[in-house]
């Protein structure tokens, strides 16, 4: 009896070892598949074209910043960075300004309307970006904002409202009831409650929302492609344009653009990894 149990245990342990080893092998294989292309792009940005083709994975012999300078000359990366930064900051502020009070109302004011409002915002997940691309193009043209970065500052908050609302309301629902009760007794009005009590307490939730929105807004390509022109390129447009800025493909040039466009997002990723993952999970589940 005892030996049978032991043997069974042994068998399970063997099976588990095989499972875990296979897991490691496949995971590491996949990890390499991810790392190698990323590594390839980073080193390509510092090499000349002959080196990129003959020794794609070798480390660059010297740190050559020529491609960055050339990329700047070809598509004005710095201006694109400036526009992307401006658009992102503007759109982040607008999103927060409109989403925060709305999330407070939905989460903390008891009325039947809040389910209706929540349902309306969750419709946003069903609307494919491509489907409203042309109508939005026409609207923007009619408003005289075509080729103007302000158009993106206005539009990006709308695209990011559903996720922002979900994350902020679920954060606020977890806070205790007593929070605003004491403030009401002291004679505070709603705006005061929102600004002086909820804004500071919700900082962790706000950071999650702002980081996710930053990634979405910084990385957005489709609407920028349609709504901006050569004078007002976002960094994504400039990066993609590097492909056709030379008569033949100059991959080092493209790689330099890619590296520049990735840096801000990867910094955010390294700093807020947990928040990004949990935020995206919450967004996926609530959808």
């Amino acid at each position: 009896m005892n030996t049978r149990l032991l043997r069974l245990n042994q068998k399970i342990r063997d099976g588990s070892t095989i499972f875990v080893s296979c897991g490691y092998i496949l995971s590491i294989f996949y990890a390499l598949l991810i790392i190698i292309p990323l590594y390839f792009v980073i080193v390509s940005a510092f090499k000349n074209n002959a080196q990129i083709i003959t020794t794609p994975l070798a480390l660059p012999s010297t740190l050559d910043f020529k491609k960055f300078i050339q990329a700047q000359e070809n598509v004005n990366l710095l201006r694109a960075l400036l526009i992307s930064t401006g658009v992102t900051i503007g759109a982040e502020l607008v999103t927060l300004l409109i989403a925060f009070p709305a999330a407070y109302a939905v989460a903390r004011i008891q009325t039947r309307l809040s389910t209706v409002v929540e349902a309306i915002f969750s419709l946003g997940f069903l609307i494919p970006g491509l489907a409203i691309l042309m109508p939005i193009y026409l609207m923007t043209a009619k408003a005289g904002l075509l080729y103007h970065p302000v158009a993106l500052v206005i539009l990006y908050p709308a695209f990011n409202l559903p996720l922002s609302m979900i994350l902020l309301t679920s954060f606020m629902r977890k806070l205790p009831r007593e929070l605003e009760e004491s403030a009401v007794m002291d004679g505070g009005n709603v705006l005061q409650i929102i600004i002086y009590i909820f804004l500071p307490i919700c900082t962790p939730g706000i950071i999650t929302v702002m980081v996710l929105n930053f990634i979405n807004m910084w990385n957005e390509y489709l609407f920028a492609l349609i709504l901006m022109d050569s004078n007002n390129r976002t960094i994504q447009l400039a990066t993609a344009l590097l492909r056709s800025s030379q008569r033949s493909i100059d991959y080092g040039l493209i790689a330099a653009g890619v590296v520049i466009s990735l840096i801000p997002v990867y910094v955010a990723f390294m700093l807020f990894q947990e928040k990004i993952m949990s935020g995206m999970l919450a967004g996926a589940v609530k959808e």
Partner: peptide, 20 residues
Amino acid sequence: IFFSPSMISVAALAMIFLGL
């Protein structure tokens, strides 16, 4: 590592794969 590709924009991702 597994999550990092999701941080890359479509434009940058397409340009990376162009290189491949």
